[in-house]
């Protein structure tokens, strides 16, 4: 089973992964194979089943509203591949 190539390119756009022309074919056959595999679930009867998104049976623990000053700008920017002054910098964005 092949995964439709246009859909694959669209997925690449959505997930911001450039898909090389020369990998398109192998990738679409890989994804096709995975898709075929997960399609197995379609035959399972789940009409009255609630979905589980986390197995931990606990309600959300909340924290108190206390502000802590833990990180300096320098620390936050330490690993940034590019920065200007105390800002992260990216190629110019036109809104």
């Amino acid at each position: 089973m092949e995964f439709d190539k246009d859909s694959l390119l669209k997925l690449g756009k959505l997930s911001k992964i450039k898909i090389d022309e020369n990998k398109l074919s192998s990738l679409s056959s890989d994804l096709g194979s995975i898709l075929k595999f997960i399609d197995r679930l379609q035959s399972i009867e789940t009409d009255n089943v609630d979905p589980t998104s986390n197995s931990l049976d606990q309600s959300l623990v909340m924290r108190d509203d206390i502000a802590l000053d833990e990180n300096s700008a320098a620390e936050i920017l330490e690993n940034a591949p590019e920065k200007e002054l105390d800002f992260f910098s990216v190629p110019k964005v036109i809104e």
Binding site: Q42, I44, T46, S55
Partner: peptide
């Protein structure tokens, strides 16, 4: 069809 289905099977 996929994500919610999988979460339901997860419950099973």
């Amino acid at each position: 069809a996929y994500y919610i289905k999988a979460q339901k099977v997860r419950s099973l």
